[in-house]
Design a binder for these strands. Structure first.
Length: 424
RNA sequence: GUGGGUAUAGCUCAGUUGGUUAGAGCGUCAGGUUGUGGCCCUGAAGGUCACGGGUUCGAGUCCCGUUACUCACCCCA
């Protein structure tokens, strides 16, 4: 075959779907529990939204976006993240007139042109949660709690919650100046990447993994010492909520985000055992985003969690005993002969109309072959129809578990199956 | 964008210092006496050995290139 799925994309086959369903069900339930409503957005937007929202100098915008010109000449970009689109929808649809905060969640694919590796794809799926219009640190805590709760619900262990405050437009410039000054004094010892960062995005200097740069990072001024009064108070309040609820978090002064819109609170959740791409969740406050895309000043806070990485973690941590199973039909119709096939189709339709999960064998195959298929599909029972059953207007209903078999009149079949289902 | 690893059946992999029609397990399909699954037995289908060159009497095996996949850097979910 001459085609394969594009680089960095993958098919989620039926045997993996139970994991996805479990995650989606949990996400939906937790979102509702916390008072968040679903919102669905287009998977592509005007390119300018991301350039202005996410930030022109960010890696995402600079080299990872799927951008193209459509037939009308507009520059379109497949969404590389949710938050900018949610803010656009909030502003465009007048959600600012709703009671604040406006709390919404989404689930769907996002696209980034990256080199794929374990846990990293060019198309991946995010569960995205946002709360817009409120700057209370209790809301930061609530957003983080949604993440905590979701992972608890999924039975995750050994997660690491990392938090930091990266300040606001009032205090960050002064800090960046301090940080740059510190690094300029030791520029000779820097790795090439860090020299770039020093000019382009000094905050990133703290994020360097190069061993040679670690000592410099450790000694670098921490932003926590440079926060303005407002940011300091906000961060302190958030930490108090976390303490009160005994939420174990790690203060990580080096935690920096790759998107320009973040202010004050930033956080990530790291999982174990899923490879080097271990961030299963990332988020924070973005009080400057609305203005960046041309709206009135509007605070907001949110997070995104990657379903593929959650599923990896689920498989890795929650292990075999909780592995979800695939659906199994309640009854399989095996038939011999054309008349029996016609009757099987009718009874099959009756079962489905009655809400009984039912399937049939196709083609002219031996009863043995049909039994084998029923067994492979995990059917609970087999209804056999042949000449003698047609004559007696019955089916032979066999339990695949204990092998017991008895004749059941056609008219009583759905009732009998329902009774047996309820009994089992 | 930069490195490392890998490439044989749908899946997981064997394939001996280069030597005839390329193998196994699993899976799929069928058969093992009339119309009954699982276990067992038998059989079948399924492979341009990623692609292109080269060395050689002879290449799945050695060499070079390309592509793909993969892991890591980077960045992030």
């Amino acid at each position: 075959m001459s085609f394969q799925s594009p680089k960095g994309t993958k098919d989620v086959l039926p045997d993996e779907q139970p994991y996805w369903e479990r995650v989606e069900t949990a996400a939906r339930r937790i979102a509702r529990l916390y008072g968040y409503e679903r919102i669905d957005l287009p998977v592509f937007e005007d390119t300018g939204l991301y350039k202005r929202g996410v930030g022109a100098g960010t890696d995402i915008v600079e080299k990872e976006m799927y951008t193209f010109e459509d037939k009308g000449g507009s520059s379109i970009t497949l969404r590389p993240e949710f938050t900018a689109g949610v803010m656009r929808a909030y502003l465009e649809n007048g959600l600012a007139s709703w009671p604040k905060p406006v709390k919404v969640w989404s689930i769907g694919p996002v696209f980034r042109y990256e080199r794929p590796q374990a846990g990293r794809f060019r198309q991946h799926t995010q569960f995205n949660v946002e709360a817009i219009g409120e700057s209370d640190p209790a809301l930061d805590f609530e957003i983080m709690s949604v993440a905590f709760h979701l992972y608890e619900e999924l039975g995750f262990r050994n997660l690491s919650f990392q938090i930091n405050s990266i300040g606001c437009p009032k205090c960050r410039p002064a800090y960046l100046e301090k940080l740059s000054a510190y690094y300029r004094s030791r520029e000779d010892g820097l790795c090439p990447d860090c020299r770039q960062r020093l000019v382009r995005n000094p905050l990133r200097l703290l994020d360097c993994k190069n061993p040679g740069c670690q000592a410099g990072i450790a000694a670098a001024p921490a932003i926590s010492d440079s926060l303005c009064g407002e940011c300091e108070a906000h961060f302190r309040a958030l930490r108090a909520y976390l303490d009160d609820r005994k939420r174990p978090v790690t203060l990580n002064h080096r935690l920096v985000r790759g998107l320009d819109y973040y202010t004050k609170t930033v956080f990530e959740v790291w999982a174990e055992g899923i490879g080097s791409q271990n961030a299963v969740c990332g988020g924070g406050r973005y009080d400057g985003l609305a203005e960046a895309v041309g709206g009135p000043a509007t605070p907001g806070v949110g997070f995104a969690s990657g379903i593929e990485r959650i599923v990896l973690t689920l498989k890795q941590q929650a292990a075999a005993e909780t592995a979800p199973s695939r659906p199994k039909p309640a009854v399989y119709f095996a038939h011999l002969g054309a008349d029996a096939a016609r009757q099987a189709v009718t009874l099959l339709a009756e079962c489905r109309a009655a809400g009984i999960e039912a399937v049939m064998g196709f083609g002219e195959r031996s009863l043995k072959a049909q039994m084998r298929e029923a067994n492979n599909r995990g059917a609970a029972r087999v209804a056999v129809i042949g000449e003698s059953e047609i004559a007696g207007r019955v089916v032979q209903l066999k339990s695949m578990e204990d092998g017991g078999q008895s004749a059941v009149p056609w008219a009583e079949l759905t009732a009998t199956l329902k009774a047996k289902e309820a009994g089992a």
